[in-house]
């Protein structure tokens, strides 16, 4: 397709004041509003009860022992290892030791998991509702407007990105339609929000997506719903048991010190 060089379209300057500018402002304001609404809707994570804390911390204890085993003498390590392997195997740190042989509970019926899912849903709703409304608004009022011209040339590939809602085949890619401007704002305002609201804002949807990907990172829960602590414990016991290599860091320290002088 031959591009018309210097394609000219006469635009009403009012397009800038009545479409481009309002869309941008509305997008920023919704972002800010969304941030505060999310803050309001967020329920504080429920504090864990002592049994759950015990279950998690004793698991971490085993991991600590495994990673820093070389810091303590072999005899100390062996006694700890034997104790932990026996305790892990017997399941004495589990929240409910009877559940050890049962099938893992359905995450949907787990009240903790429900809580988490409820939070996730709230977050999702905060994204979906305003986006639907604004997109509907733009489609109803501004569809089909060409509102600005980019100051640089682009390849044809960008046409679908920059000119959605305008079905003109021969128009230069540099022209941007209102709907596309909306999308650009939706994905591109991140740094603006960081500037306005600080680093950990919930206005930007990419952040929310990242959080959805690994929901366990921000919560206190070490064992997510659906994970079976009993299995994780026995796996850790196995890890400890197969550790054969132990190099005490204090071995030969006198030579190391003398070598540095």
């Amino acid at each position: 397709m031959a591009q018309v060089v210097g394609q000219q379209i006469l635009r009403d300057p009012a397009l800038f004041y009545w479409i481009l500018f309002p869309i941008t402002v509305v997008m920023i304001l919704t972002g800010v509003l969304r941030h505060y609404a999310t803050l309001l809707l967020q329920s504080a994570p429920k504090p864990l009860d002592s049994k759950a804390i015990r279950e998690q911390k004793n698991y971490l204890h085993g991991i600590n022992l495994r990673t820093n085993a070389n810091q303590i003498p072999l005899s100390s390590f062996t006694s700890r290892k034997n104790y932990l392997v026996a305790a892990y195997g017997a399941g004495s740190f589990l929240k409910d030791p009877d559940a050890k042989n049962k099938a893992p509970a359905n995450p949907m019926s787990d009240p903790n998991g429900m809580d988490q899912m409820m939070n996730m849903m709230k977050g999702n709703m905060m994204m979906i509702v305003p986006q639907t409304v604004i997109m509907g608004w733009i489609n109803a009022f501004f569809s089909g407007f060409v509102i600005m011209k980019l100051p640089f040339p682009l390849t044809i590939r960008f046409k679908s990105m920059l000119q959605s809602g305008v079905m003109t085949k021969d128009m230069d890619v540099r022209w941007v339609s209102s709907l596309s401007w909306y999308f650009l704002c939706l994905f591109g305002l991140r740094s603006v929000f960081t500037f306005i609201l600080g680093n950990e804002n919930s206005a930007d949807q990419t952040m929310a997506q990242v959080q959805q990907m690994n929901p366990q990172q921000n919560t206190q829960q070490l064992f997510g719903p659906g994970q079976d602590p009993a299995k994780m414990y026995s796996a850790e016991a196995e890890n400890l048991e197969v550790m054969v290599q132990h190099e005490f860091v204090l071995d030969g320290i006198e030579d190391r010190i003398l070598a540095t002088v």
């Binding site: 600590n64 820093n68 810091q71 303590i72 003498p73 100390s76």
Partner: peptide
């Protein structure tokens, strides 16, 4: 000594 070794496991 046992307790202090435990500290070293946490803060090597």
């Amino acid at each position: 000594i046992y307790c202090l070794e435990e500290v070293l496991l946490i803060l090597p």
